[in-house]
Design a protein around this nucleic acid. Structure first.
Lengths: 296, 296
DNA sequence: ATTAAAGCATGAATATTATTCATGTATGTA
DNA sequence: TACATACATGAATAATATTCATGCTTTAAT
């Protein structure tokens, strides 16, 4: 079979001019090269070179292989370089999945220093998953999952990266704004704005309204945080969001936040990763950056 | 060293799904593949795949190599195909050198059936040589030389392909046209038109005028046969050319030919080839075609 | 829950392949 | 003419690849 080694031999013979020098260059004996090419010649029934005086001259076939070698040898070398970069953790793709709408802003503050520190690691962020985010992680569709709901699984490790309070955002002039904390019944006459996910995954329902048997007057769905908060400012509804997120908008919008219940709703964001294979170095760095980014 | 074989293994594993099936596909044992990849992994310090249940899953590095393989394996296969074509004599380049201006028309009649019979053999025709046509042949700049002057050389074989008479072309109404043959002195008052080569390589001089100590009144240089003959028809001069060439123009131009001397000037065209290496099959076919093409 | 089967990894044995060594031949050079 | 250089080649040896035997883990079946 035509092999990389043959191309190296041809290349060395062409550049040095003689088989003997080529052999020195490749740190083997002249005999080894003669034998190797002879075998190739027999395999394909072509002459690769022929003696001319005390040197050799490439035949048509030899020149063909030489040109071929000039084209593919650099490709091999490039692939080897990439392997070495992977070995040193200098190259890779970090595919991040997010199950947490408001986390996007926070994630950006982690990704930004990360891509500066690891210029050869590509970062991908996905938010849509055909078979759920956990499935995507297990099926190698993503390498890391950012979620407030760490569904336990044998092959997934979770690490909490920061804790925050889930609060109700209200217009600054709302009567709710002056309360020390909100009770479920306070929302019975309000319009509640949420992201477009099932109610079973919204803490405002699962941990606050549903246990108390209360429903909001209306339920509006809005996809983007910015629009959602503008609606709140315009007194078109109230929303439940991370406190840090609300605070980051308070210099732009006339809104206020109030704790949900006297006990407050406390949440954590988790990074989930597979434990099936050894994680590359840069993933550890990413986790470290994520932990330091608690303050937004 | 990263080798073609590794890429085949990765490709087989990816397409079959398991190492065992890949091994069957490659007609070796599963163990052989495991060992081969393990060695590769150790050489570069990367994992190529990792066990997942009872199968394996490609790592980043494995996917890189897989993609690389998909790109280069077809290149190898193409190169091998080309080698086999060369082996069967189906592929090659026949580089022809010509030292014989009027031969071009004859050559075309040989090349035409040749390229039809050997569609994968390229034909190149060169007419300019830095160190002489013989040097070009010895230095592998060309593979075949077409010449009326076979300069003998140890490593060159010549073969005469056809004989012809060198005649004088004159306007049909010229007084010379009615002579049985031309004497040197008949040209003393004529304008002689020749191709742009040294007089020492023109038979009209070396074998006719110079031995008789005669010079033509004028000597004009013209590069193309067609123009040369039109000048003759217009009574602007006479020229010495192969008889067959003149005859092929006589239906278009009002010209006649007369033998040079009572003994005539007879010439042969030779094909010269190197005898250093074994010539490809198609070269023999070319020579055979050349011999059959004597009549133009 | 237990067993069976499938699949991969691995050390040791073996087979294969590559390389060297010794030598012959041809060619250019002193 | 002798000598040095360069390539080819058969035989010997070294290196490498492959197989064999086996253990471990996972999945499927009973």
């Amino acid at each position: 079979m035509l092999d990389r080694q043959h191309l190296h031999i041809l290349s060395a013979v062409a550049s040095t001019g003689t088989v003997t020098e080529a052999a020195n260059k490749l740190h083997v004996t002249q005999s080894a090269l003669s034998h190797a090419i002879k075998k190739l010649e027999q395999a394909y029934g072509v002459k690769v070179w022929h003696k001319e005086g005390r040197r050799v001259r490439m035949t048509n076939a030899g020149q063909l292989l030489l040109k071929f070698g000039n084209r593919v040898i650099p490709q091999f070398e490039h692939a080897e370089l990439q392997l070495q970069q992977i070995a040193k953790g200098e190259r890779g793709t970090l595919r991040i999945g997010m199950e947490c709408h408001p986390c996007y802003q926070w994630l950006l503050t982690v990704v930004k220093p990360f891509i500066r520190e690891f210029p050869d690691i590509d970062v991908d962020v996905k938010q849509q998953f055909q078979f759920g985010a956990l499935g995507a992680l297990l099926e190698y569709e993503i390498d890391m999952l950012i979620t407030p709901d760490p569904l336990l699984h044998k092959h997934i490790n979770y690490q909490a990266v920061f804790d925050y309070e889930h609060v109700l955002v209200v217009p600054a002039d709302s009567t709710l704004a002056s309360l020390g904390f909100i009770r479920p019944t306070d929302l019975a006459d309000e319009t509640l704005i949420t992201y477009p996910v099932e109610a079973s995954r919204l803490d405002i329902f699962t941990r606050f309204l549903t246990p108390a048997g209360v429903s909001p007057k209306r339920h509006k769905i809005i996809e983007t945080t910015e629009i959602m908060l503008q609606m709140v400012e315009a007194s078109r509804g109230v929303a439940a969001l991370p406190r840090w997120l609300v605070e980051s908008f308070q210099d732009k919008l006339d809104i206020k936040w109030v704790s949900l219940g006297s006990a407050k709703i406390m949440k954590s964001i988790y990074l989930g990763t597979r434990n099936k294979e050894q994680a590359p170095d840069y993933m550890g760095h990413f986790k470290a950056l994520a932990k330091r980014a608690r303050v937004v």
